[in-house]
Design a protein around this nucleic acid. Structure first.
Lengths: 220, 220
DNA sequence: ATACTATTCAATTAATCAATTGAATATTTG
DNA sequence: CAAATATTCAATTGATTAATTGAATAGTAT
């Protein structure tokens, strides 16, 4: 029994997964794929990378079996190999938040309104899902909403919010959410809605966290 | 509001944590530190690295704020900066097991008896903690046992087990555990004890998983 | 058939990472 | 004090990673 070799080989497999996510672009790609399947050029655009570079990063994730692909015509669509792959991002996020002062500094620098907003926890929203006076507002792009969203949520993509305010009843409380803890769409929605006199709060996490917690979702 | 920059900076911090654990030696170091604080030369020995190399890897973990150090005389002792850092290893392990066929292949190659042994889950052991006929056997080195162990466990380090069999009542059921899912001490203990007619099963995970689940622990 | 398009592949270059080496630093002992 | 020791530091070397570039491949439309 060669323990040393066993240990080494096992830890090499664990490191293989860690290496695959040890790059900021690849983390962002996983985050986007957790919203729903995406083509290479869509991912490239969203992450401000060249198609060739995005493709290389996707091959790295694929080598580690974290994503899978299907081809349709000219396009290749990627998705998470298993939804639990998103747990890698979650755990990294939680540990980084806990251990790195830089995370707070970055959040406080860019999201200056967050300190004054009490977010809604997943659990709180779960208990209020059937509340008649509550609007759950998904401000991600409509495609993402249709691929999966919190049960009962309605969709107004952030870039349409200003022009579609009239669709939202001012008497109701709104919980806005988007892609995850570091997605800014919901922060922007809270700002806009607050300026227009709405009672609105941001959901603390995002759709992938909700889904991964096996809470009620819908697709369109 | 520069979303692109915010996204990039946040993901760089997440990647910083991932990079720190994206090395097999560093994963093993975290695993060992989860058993309790350790000096550099002890870590170097256990991981079959030079002291200089171990020290370099420790500096990498330290840069990512995953470990902390205290000095005592000539020696520097390292520990996890927070016990939840072990969650990185747990998550990587779970995703690797789920996504990489290589993990099963490696385990089946080196731990050939595992397929025929039904392990005890943490939950099952928790419900049986006060069972009078059950012996919980910690087969890690005695130092690790003293730094922290499952409440009510007794210690016989694996390298002393053959010579101390007489201390174990053959009429009782034994649950053996060690450092974690890929620690082989408990497998070896099961083999030895089974050969000698004991009724013994391995705990599925190890002490750090037990501790991280906030289940009852003791120190000596 | 040609032209266009989405993606991958492979090569190149620069940056980063890992192991080793030996010196430097700090502590302990006789 | 000198000698021994545990660890870190810094430099070197070789390996790996990331971005870019342009060619190759496969699919679609005319």
């Amino acid at each position: 029994m060669d323990h040393r070799t066993f240990k080494t080989e096992i830890n090499e497999q664990l490191a293989r997964i860690a290496k695959a996510v040890a790059n900021p672009h690849r983390l962002e790609i996983i985050d986007l794929l957790a919203q729903g399947e995406r083509s290479v050029d869509a991912l490239a655009q969203e992450t401000a990378m060249s198609v060739a570079n995005a493709s290389q990063h996707l091959q790295a994730l694929r080598e580690a079996r974290l994503i899978t692909a299907r081809k349709e015509g000219l396009r290749v669509y990627y998705r998470l190999a298993d939804y639990t792959v998103y747990r890698l991002v979650q755990t990294l996020r939680e540990i980084a938040q806990q251990q790195l002062a830089e995370v707070d500094r970055i959040v406080n620098t860019y999201l200056t309104q967050r300190a004054s907003m009490e977010p809604v926890t997943l659990n709180e929203l779960l208990t209020r899902l059937r509340e008649p006076g509550l609007v759950i507002l998904d401000v991600r792009p409509a495609l993402e909403y249709s691929q999966g969203h919190i049960a009962g949520a309605r969709s107004i993509p952030i870039d349409e919010l200003e022009s579609r305010l009239h669709e939202l009843p001012q008497a109701q409380e709104i919980v806005a959410y988007c892609r995850g803890e570091y997605c800014v769409f919901a922060d922007e929605a809270v700002e806009i809605l607050t300026e227009h006199g709405y009672h609105v709060r941001r959901l603390q996490l995002g759709y992938p966290d909700w889904k991964l917690a096996d809470l009620p979702t819908e697709t369109e």
